[in-house]
Simulated assay, not measured.
Amino acid sequence: AAALLDRGCEVVIANRTLERAEALVEALGGGEAVAWYEWPSLLSGCSLLVNATSMGMGGKPGLDWDAALREAAPGLCVTDIVYTPRETPLLLAAQARGLRTVDGLGMLVHQARAGFRAWFGVDPQADRTTFDLLAASLRTDA
């Protein structure tokens, strides 16, 4: 959210607790907080949806994502920070609607790179092989 705000994007934060959304907006110094039940109705005017909850992660309860995406703009890009499973119920619902999707593996890798850099002073590179090896190690069906 901070990076999007830094780039001049309009950011809407929804949380199951409105007060927490408002606190995050205040901490970020920008954006708009909305009640949890409001965000699906805003999707017609959005170009990016980021799920930063644990919904969809290995057996955790989720939403009726298909219903939540009914108002989505045709060009909406849907991303989920969950990386296991790679194709979360949200991403599958978005794909079924023909929306672009991004799974959470890239966030995991680049977050790890930043941590490695902070600890060891070395900026590790992440290439296709890195992603493929990590993806293979995360498979639960293998």
Rank of each mutant, 00 (worst) to 15 (best):
Q111N: 14
L91F: 11
A94Y: 12
A114T: 12
D103S: 15
G106I: 09
T79I: 05
L92C: 13
G104L: 02
T101N: 07
M107S: 11
P85D: 00
V78Q: 06
L90P: 03
F116C: 03
A96M: 08
R113D: 01
R97Q: 15
R97W: 10
V78K: 05
L105I: 07
D103Q: 07
R117I: 06
L90N: 00
L108C: 01
G115L: 02
L105K: 01
M107I: 12
T101G: 07
A112C: 12
L92G: 14
V82P: 01
T101I: 15
L99R: 13
Q95F: 05
G98W: 07
A112K: 02
H110T: 04
A114F: 11
L108F: 11
R117C: 05
L90G: 14
Q95T: 04
L105N: 01
R86Q: 14
T88M: 08
R86T: 09
L105E: 00
M107C: 08
V109R: 05
P89D: 11
T101L: 09
E87L: 08
T84L: 08
F116G: 02
L99N: 13
G115R: 15
M107R: 08
Y83K: 01
A114K: 13
G104Q: 02
R113S: 00
V109F: 07
R86D: 06
D103R: 13
R100Y: 10
R86H: 11
R113W: 00
R97P: 04
A94P: 14
T88V: 09
E87D: 14
A93Y: 04
G106N: 07
G115F: 02
T79L: 11
I81C: 09
A94E: 13
T101H: 13
A112F: 10
R86C: 04
L92Y: 05
L91Y: 07
T84M: 07
L108S: 03
P89A: 08
A114C: 07
T84S: 15
L91K: 08
L105G: 03
V109H: 03
R100L: 08
R117T: 12
T101P: 09
D103T: 12
L90Y: 03
L92E: 14
V78D: 01
G115A: 15
V102M: 14
I81S: 12
F116V: 06
G106V: 14
T101W: 09
A94T: 14
D103M: 15
Q95S: 03
